[in-house]
């Protein structure tokens, strides 16, 4: 019986490795943290649920610059002790609530140290922008 043990172990090892490879096969690029549901009490902030407990939007202010362009500032705080990264983007809407598609929404990445607060600012692309929405999500991992 003892002499058969190496064969058995080799077989088990091979099956395990094969399973790992099969599971990873055809799966690239790996997608992580797809924000399945947005949340946020105010409709002008959409926060990825996976950032909950780590990143909070403390305050949002709006103003006007250059006479007629909407300016927005959001205070973001990392409530954890670890540095974290997040992606964010501002969407702009005209007075009828229609999304302004030009220029396209640009996602940017920021990092925030533990317990740090930072400000995200943006200026509307043109005077027709009367409202906005801030979207925050965890960076997407690719391999």
């Amino acid at each position: 019986m003892k002499t058969n043990a190496p064969f058995l172990r080799l077989g088990l090892l091979s099956v395990s490795i094969a399973t790992i490879f099969l599971l990873s096969a055809c799966n690239a690029p790996v997608r992580m943290t797809e924000p399945s549901e947005w949340e946020g009490e105010r409709d002008y902030v959409q926060m990825d649920r996976t950032l909950q407990g780590q990143v909070v939007i403390k305050d949002v202010n709006r103003s006007k610059v250059s006479d007629n362009l909407l300016q927005v500032q959001a205070e973001v705080q990392n409530t954890s002790r670890r540095m974290t990264r997040f992606n964010y983007a501002f969407e702009w809407f005209n007075e009828d609530g229609i999304l302004i598609t030009s220029p396209p929404v640009t996602w940017k990445t920021r990092q925030i140290e533990g317990n740090e607060s930072i400000f995200l600012t943006a200026v509307a692309p043109h005077a027709e922008a009367k409202d906005f929405r801030l979207k925050v999500m965890r960076p997407v991992s690719r391999n």
Binding site: L10, G11, L13, V15, I17, A18
Partner: peptide
């Protein structure tokens, strides 16, 4: 073991 190797 042979089947395992083939699967791998």
């Amino acid at each position: 073991s042979l089947s395992g190797l083939a699967l791998l």
